[in-house]
Amino acid sequence: MEPIKVAGITFRLDATKPFYEQIVAQVCGALARGELGLEERMPSVRELAQLLKVNPNTVMRAYQDLERSGLLVTYRGQGTFTTNKPEPVERIRRELAHGAVQDLVGVMRQLGLSREQTMTLIQEVDWE
């Protein structure tokens, strides 16, 4: 499905995976990359559901999940906002980085590279 931009988040939903998990993952990614800042207003459940063409229950469930992880906060009568605390965002950033390294290790192992060879490659790689 086509990408949909809202409040600093670019949603790309794929009909082959549960939508609720994708919404959670994509909000997490936007927070971790800083595309979505602290204390920012999230779209309402209704707005996001209409934009993404998904059931409001799906968005509600994703928001509840993100609230439990401390990434979103809902204030009665005011709406849903991203957290004002950097710690949960830092935790997500680390989790995502850890996952990316795990993926890299998997690929290197498949390619038959040792830990040392991989470390050398990482040291030699151009970060810019």
Partner: peptide, 14 residues
């Protein structure tokens, strides 16, 4: 079709 889907989603939310 998209407008219809949006209206139905709005109705569920509303």
């Amino acid at each position: 079709r998209e407008a219809m889907v949006e209206a139905v989603i709005g109705a569920i939310a509303g």
